[in-house]
Computed example of a mutant assay.
Amino acid sequence: MDQQLFTKLLFCFLTIFKLCIAAQSDHTLSPNQTLVDGQLLISSSKIFELGFSSPANNTRRFLVIRYRNTPDVFVWLANRETPLTGRQGRLTLTNNGSLILTSPHLTTTLWIPSSDATVSSPTLQLLDSGNLVLTGDKQGTYLWQSFDYPCNTRLPGMTMTVDRAKYLTSWRSSNDPFPGEYSYGISNEGLSQIVVAKGKKKTYRTVFWNNEFVGFPNLGERAWMTEATSRKGRLVSVTNPIDDPGITRITLNPGGMVERFMMNERRDGWTSMLASPRDSCEVYGKCGGNGICKVYMTPICECLKGFRPRAETE
């Protein structure tokens, strides 16, 4: 083989190899770099990873953030409503800062700068908090972040606000991440509260009163502390402080139950610490406006004094 041709081929091979290794082991993506199916962005402490994956018993591909030690647990999906077929997905950060997800049959723009904006030195980075952030040349400023577009999981440091874009939505089923029937977010209709709803029907709530959540169980761990912001007595935002990243998560499951999980000591599995509603009596309006719910009774509902059930079976 001609020595000059060999040198060129070797240079091309080493360049491609270097790019692949960087994409598989680095926590950042630079302008005009592409993350393809099979490559990963890994947070600096190796807690979270970003890559293409599929839920169990599902052949469609999604760009997901998941735990590195428990890769079956997805905390965020870029394309939960537009899954890819095949393994030809690509995430590209363009020179002007656009973030584009492509496959042979689909193009999805995750973020694009406004026409009058100039983005210098864009960088996509996966943080140890599980937040995927796009930064420019301004220190400490995020042009875009995955925490602003939650799916079914709330992580420490993620803020839930009254803005309807900042609430959780369940998966349609355990292996289908398409938005399901249930939502979990802040409501200021009547009393300020955090509400689980099936469509528009409220199924569970925690009331915010006098700057605290009434009836909210205290697990005695800083990891479960909730920081709330209110304005004129109305709930504005709720967040959990970042203490030990990757240890806790709150998930809204397909059946409308909110579960709080803690990673075990071996860091290879999860323990459910709390599930709400905890029993049938915590289901909102279970016994109607004039009923009392007693979980130890059969039936569990009884009427207030002076009222009677509409039907004996109730």
Rank of each mutant, 00 (worst) to 15 (best):
A223E: 15
N290C: 07
C20V: 13
I250E: 05
S53G: 14
N69D: 14
T15K: 10
N188C: 11
F147T: 00
T102E: 13
N218F: 10
E189D: 15
F48E: 04
F17N: 11
P83I: 01
V295A: 10
V207Y: 07
T153G: 05
L106S: 14
A23G: 14
N96Q: 14
L5T: 14
V36T: 14
G291L: 05
G285V: 04
G306L: 07
K18A: 14
P179F: 04
R61S: 09
G180N: 01
P309L: 04
T102P: 09
K305A: 13
M257N: 08
L63M: 05
L91F: 05
Q145C: 10
P104S: 04
K305C: 06
I47N: 03
V196N: 00
F48R: 03
G97I: 05
S114W: 09
Y284I: 01
E189L: 14
D2T: 07
F208Q: 03
G180T: 00
T271W: 09
L40P: 00
P277E: 01
R66V: 04
R61L: 02
G38A: 05
T159F: 05
L9H: 13
F261E: 08
V283I: 15
F178R: 11
P104I: 05
N290Q: 11
T203F: 00
A117D: 11
V133H: 03
I194V: 15
F48Q: 05
F62W: 03
P254R: 00
T59G: 02
K201S: 12
G180E: 00
S272V: 14
Y296W: 11
S170W: 01
S280M: 12
P156F: 02
V238Y: 02
Q33H: 12
S146G: 09
N58Q: 06
T102R: 13
T118C: 04
R310V: 10
V236N: 04
G246A: 08
C287E: 03
L14D: 07
Y167M: 15
E221A: 12
Q4E: 12
G199P: 08
L10I: 06
L252A: 00
M257Y: 14
S43R: 00
M297W: 02
Y204T: 04
F11P: 00
P31N: 04
D37K: 03
L99N: 05
S53D: 15
C12E: 13
I242A: 07
F11R: 15
M160I: 15
L127M: 14
S170L: 06
T229I: 13
S129P: 08
S43N: 01
S170G: 09
T92Y: 00
L5K: 13
V162A: 08
